[in-house]
Nucleic acid binder design. Sequence first.
RNA 1: GGCCCGGUAGUUCAGUUGGUUAGAACGCUAGCCUGUCACGCUAGAGGCCGAGGGUUCGAGUCCCUUCCGGGUCGCCA
Length: 589
Amino acid sequence: MGDWKRTHMCGILNTGHIGEEVTLMGWTHKRRDLGGLIFIDLRDRTGVVQVVFDEQNCGDFFKKAETVRSEYVLAVKGIIVKRDPETVNPKIPTGEIEVSAKQLKILSASATPPFSIEDNTNVSELVRLKYRYLDLRRAEMQRNIILRHKIVKCVRDFLDSKGFYEIETPMLTRSTPEGARDYLVPSRIHPGRFYALPQSPQIFKQLLMLSGCDRYFQIARCFRDEDLRADRQPEFTQIDIEMSFVDVEDVLSINELLLAEVFKKTLDVDISLPLPRLTYREAMERYGSDKPDTRFGLELKDVSDIAAGCGFKVFANAVEQGGSVRGINAKGCALKFSRREIDSLVDFVKNYDAKGLAWIAVEEDGLKSPITKFFTQEQISSLLGRLQAETGDLLLFVADRNDVVFQALGQLRLELARRLGLINDKKYNLLWITEFPLLEYDDEEQRFVAVHHPFTSPMDEDIELLDTDPGKVRAKAYDAVLNGVELGSGSIRIHAAELQEKMFDVLGFSYEKAYERFGFLMEAFKYGTPPHGGFAYGLDRLVMLLLGRDSIRDVIAFPKMQNASDPLTDAPSEVEPKQLKELHIRVDE
RNA sequence: GGCCCGGUAGUUCAGUUGGUUAGAACGCUAGCCUGUCACGCUAGAGGCCGAGGGUUCGAGUCCCUUCCGGGUCGCCA
């Protein structure tokens, strides 16, 4: 750069700068060479400005300008001049002015990039990730990264103003049972022993409450060695929050304020408080999901009572065996969907273990359906009544175990909404799901496992059920849901050592075993534990939703591909035999 | 591990019932061009059709295997 100093950013220049001499630095976005006249769009993170090189009044540096190619890094000295009215470019914010070049330095050349640096560059994600530094030059990606920064900044400011301390917790910690597969880190000093990267700072934030910190938060990286999805990465970021001397209402209300603040400050969207709430049970009954998308209807209706006595064995048996029959009214779809489309819906629910999908099309000249012959006239009119069927509607039913019915119809509901275009992507439907079950029975393990985590407090009125009917116990656990995506979850924790021991007991851990694994925590709980609870958001998902993207890879600077590798650095990689030896590790070929 | 979609030029894609020398657009290179902003015009370079095997007189195209990318189910306290 020599003695040149940048005076302005490219994208902020406007008619107010006319006449000023400026020094700009940035990348060559586009070059238009007209012979004796060269236009170069110079780009930095603020935007693009047009620089003009005129052979008449450029010195020998005009020749230099001729050699400039895409993505060359330039320093330009020039005068800001007003463009003639007929040459104004209304498409860019700096379009009323341009830079008349007085001097040029090529700070660095560039190889021809593998794809062009512009939005809507329809290039495969593999190529984008391999050259992520180029991908991140695109304005669209910069917007994503900037919004992420703003959200984090907003969260920090808000929580600071509410008396929360930001405290870091260890990345090298111990593996705990339950939950996701751990990423393990071998210990050199302790042969055969391993650290685990945290799945979340859960235990440490509880210990911070024990330590009297009162209010804690952290923008915490978390690691889970499970298969990837559009909204799941092996390392991701949580906004992790914990508070002392609180109950459910305290946690929900401060989190509502936080969410409203984030929406207002980053998107200028007003969220009306308090947020709507659904209990877990109601969410399942009405939407077949614990993270319902409430931007559209298509709610589930229970028709088990009608199906119980009917002649259709599939329906009757499902109810008899403790399951249910439920249906969705696809409004106006009787004629809209062809037989082939209905068949594709049948195949769709089979992905979710439903054995079939029964349907009744309510048409002007009567009902069309493969199943109505099994029902009496009365039963049919009750079915139609229950689903509020009108002419033109298509009624869809699944009969099975409750979990299958809920999942199949919950997913079918989303699929119908997609096909029918019912989803308004301008809407932000935030809500709380409360009263999650504390435990669920795991057939494989032959025992109850924690739905949330083993430190979650049962609801006071359900504690007695721990002995008699653990599956019925509701927890002081809650999720925040936005447009059908789980944004975060939290709970009030158990703070009484006896209750915690009881919990381990129900989970099938003997006292000895529980002590072996969580002894440090149970020991800690002996020394005066404040009632406490908290919440954790998936930051990546939050950013994704606020940007209307459908992959968190678009809001993470350097994400991993579906196979958990990084094409840029080629991680994970093999390591030197010496490194393995130091770690006392032998690779099993 | 299962299922679905995809893999052809640097990039995004087309490629008919299997049939001459595999195309287009953008990008790239060179030349011309003083008001472009998707600059224009002319010329040109660029291909292991993901890989391997098979069927066939003949395979980008059909079959099998395999690798890679994406989505999804399982999994994700």
